[in-house]
Design a protein around this nucleic acid. Sequence first.
DNA 1: TTTGAGTGGTTTCATGATGAAACCAATTGA
DNA 2: TCAATTGGTTTCATCATGAAACCACTCAAA
Lengths: 150, 150
Amino acid sequence: MKRTSMEGVACPVARSLDVMGDWWSLLIVRDAMLGLRRFGEFQKSLGVAKNILSQRLKHLVAHDILEVQPASDGSAWQEYVLTQKGRRLFPVLVALREWGAEHCFEEGEPRTVMLDAAQGLPVKPLELRAADGRLLDLQDTRLVREPPER
Amino acid sequence: MKRTSMEGVACPVARSLDVMGDWWSLLIVRDAMLGLRRFGEFQKSLGVAKNILSQRLKHLVAHDILEVQPASDGSAWQEYVLTQKGRRLFPVLVALREWGAEHCFEEGEPRTVMLDAAQGLPVKPLELRAADGRLLDLQDTRLVREPPER
DNA sequence: TTTGAGTGGTTTCATGATGAAACCAATTGA
DNA sequence: TCAATTGGTTTCATCATGAAACCACTCAAA
């Protein structure tokens, strides 16, 4: 009766959600991308119970999304920083951000916006493109098994 | 002690996860994008308990991500199909797919790949670009509150 | 060098969410 | 007309979550 696992499944979406599919993990990663590093910083930002945060941080470390480092300020505490694998979640968060900004706010309700730091202009919405650069939508795509089954 | 809600929060990521942040919802949307429509099809594909599926479908309908339609084959049953808002989750699933494909499989383990249907070639990985087209990474971006607080 | 505040957790316990199975009504096919 | 299929709902045991209390360690100041 355990929470169903997608370990053996061939769909990468299912695999991702198997690791990141709980409520807090992506928010922790989001905060880590904003520069938060310390247990207390995450706890304050998210308002999550400390036992849950502890559990989630361990989970993310175990899956090589965060790693534990000695504190950068010279104190004896430790910090949680994103690994390469964790930083690669950036497009996922950008996509969620775009969808949320477009569909989960009332007209005029204040929200945060992602800017290109160099120019100070909003970033371009994510686009899916073909190898030759054509813009693709859901119905322009198809899924196949790779490597093909014999 | 309810499951924490992000309703009043200004971060669009948090708002998105408030709606889509449970384990099954995104998988249901994924299946809907693959063309599944009927209760039984989702149940068979996901292996989820029927009460949970029922609950999730209601949730997605309530949030205007799926809508209920009379069956397209003329029978008296009903179907669940994606709304515009639901279809807009496509980039989120693509991003999750890319991350999962890259980081959640062993070498050589079979996985599904997304092709451009017209050419039969794999799609280009998602890229975040600035308004002027420059490729952006996490550290090239910045968040601001919009509209700015007085 | 003690002391008191702050940090980073773990433990405990009540409650909510999940999942399996049984059940049931309406629809469909034979 | 009768049995199987579809699309659920109900029930109940178990798991996960969250709040609060607790605790050990670090650090800064007296």
